[in-house]
């Protein structure tokens, strides 16, 4: 009985890790611009690899009777560093003038040539509930 329960838990964690890794790959291929791809890649693959590390830890604990604390350290390390890496990537991309997708409706960091905040950065569109059908019906660029 305990074999079935433990094997099911280990299989759940391993299959969950593989599933979220696959979701990250689908997001990387399908999403339109760099920022949304970063959103998919950082969140989903982090959760996937954390589940996979937990499954590996339980597997070696149960099957081989070997407790490996480095896997716990790997989980904590991924949990700390993945948001930092994603934030640095997004910051680097924004300073390198990577264009957001054309249907992006809020860009709070946008500046004009003098360095002042751009007054027309789309916040009003959200508050008044206006939509932009001229932009939404445009063909998405590859």
């Amino acid at each position: 009985m305990i074999e079935i329960v433990m094997s099911s838990i280990i299989a759940f964690f391993i299959l969950g890790g593989a599933f979220f890794g696959f979701v990250a790959a689908i997001g990387l291929i399908r999403l339109p611009d760099m920022y949304t791809r970063l959103h998919a890649a950082s969140k989903s693959s982090t959760l996937g690899v954390m589940m996979m590390m937990t499954g590996t830890f339980l597997y070696f604990w149960y099957v081989e009777s070997y407790v490996d604390t480095e896997l716990v350290l790997a989980v904590v390390f991924i949990f700390i560093t993945a948001p930092v890496a994603a934030h640095l990537l997004a910051r680097s991309a924004f300073h390198a003038d990577v264009e957001p997708y054309q249907l992006t409706i809020l860009n709070e960091l946008k500046r004009d040539e003098t360095g002042a905040p751009d007054g027309n950065h789309g916040e009003r569109v959200i508050i008044e509930g206006k939509r932009r059908p001229d932009l939404e019906n445009r063909e998405p660029e590859k």
């Binding site: 990250a24 990387l28 760099m34 890649a41 690899v49 590390m53 590996t56 993945a82 990537l89």
Partner: peptide, 26 residues
């Protein structure tokens, strides 16, 4: 299209490589 897209893919590739090596160990 841009270098940053490739860098995002490289980062996620490294993360998945960790999972792959854990699977290989098992």
């Amino acid at each position: 299209p841009t270098l940053h897209d490739k860098l995002v893919a490289l980062d996620a590739f490294g993360v998945l490589l960790m999972a792959m090596i854990a699977l290989t160990a098992m």
